[in-house]
Design a protein around this nucleic acid. Structure first.
Lengths: 186, 186
DNA sequence: ATCCGCATGTAACCCGTTACATGATTCT
DNA sequence: AGAATCATGTAACGGGTTACATGCGGAT
């Protein structure tokens, strides 16, 4: 049934549709106006991706929707199916892999946003803790690398410092977020 | 002549070859052992990319090199041609575009590392200053967005905070790096 | 009648991934 | 001879980008 793993992009689309049923155009607009959406998907990426999700039975186009205020070509508003919601729920709470935390940080943040209405506080905390641990490991790795290597290139050392700095910043954010979300013990 | 713009990946490869002439295998190894090289290019990406660079006349395979210590199949060691060095020099000092600074930050850092042996101090400073300005603009944009929007989703606000935090960290790095590299005025 | 804006769709092209194949050399 | 290591290469496949095409309604 689940023909193949979903793309990151497909997961994000599915998540947005789970949050609020949308047409392709809606989604495009939301990418355009969202600050994190530095990425503006092209029609050639968006519509085929929606079709794939539909073909896999994860979303369904709610036919005949009100054709917007100033009507146009018939809109296809997609909404999640039960398997779609399940797939999305599985995706948002996937554990953070330490090895790729740096590469996937943006995706993890997206999942963090999307898990709010889905997961109880405890599971959210668990997720952010796993993110914190992965980031801490990353920082440690980088610092070990900095310590054990000498550079012929001065800029290389500075670039490494940058890596340490932004990982630290992410780590601090995670710690602060955990504090913010932890219910006061009384 | 310049058939088409180079890919980011091709630019990086060209830069690495300009720094030290290398074979595909060498490059692969360097990606694997470098911390910033979270990305490990596959053979199917690497070798075709080298071929493309060669076909465009930017690199040339220095035939018949010593077949390494414990020999193997004939290595193709590539070295930059004059147009290749020129293309690379043009790439490293391209100005930072404010609109995409977030997306391209990793690339900018690579360029920063690669420009060390190529550019005089003054031009390096100019580059880092343009990076700083772009980051400052990014931070300002994000903060404006935070200020002017209210969220139904609490996590969205927290994720925004993360964005602000890491951009700030990058900005601070840029400022500190400028200070480090600026020659003391007397 | 036409042009503009909403909304979806499609084709050519490029490139990266996965997975496999192949050469050449040394070690056992 | 066979296994291991170094080193390059290739084919199938998937998916994104660019650029263009198409429908349909309202405004001039």
């Amino acid at each position: 049934m689940a023909t193949r793993q979903l793309t990151d992009f497909e997961h994000v689309l599915l998540g947005m549709i789970c949050a609020t049923p949308s047409s392709g155009y809606d989604l495009k607009g939301r990418f355009a106006t969202t600050p994190l959406g530095v990425y503006q998907p092209s029609s050639g990426a968006l519509y085929p991706a929606l079709r794939r999700l539909e073909r896999k039975g994860l979303i369904r186009s709610e036919a005949a929707s009100a054709p917007a205020v100033r009507a146009a070509r018939r809109r296809h508003v997609y909404e999640p199916t039960a398997p779609g919601r399940a797939a999305h729920a599985g995706w948002v709470c996937m554990p953070v892999e330490a090895a790729t935390v740096s590469r996937d940080l943006g995706l993890h943040l997206m999942r963090f946003v999307m898990m709010e209405p889905l997961l109880p506080r405890a599971e959210v905390l668990q997720f952010v803790c796993s993110l914190r641990d992965a980031l801490a490991a990353s920082v440690a790795d980088l610092e070990r690398f900095v310590a054990t290597s000498s550079f012929d290139n001065r800029h290389a050392g500075l670039a490494l410092d940058h890596g340490v700095a932004i990982h630290r910043a992410s780590l601090e954010w995670a710690e602060q977020t955990i504090a913010t979300l932890t219910p006061v013990p009384r």
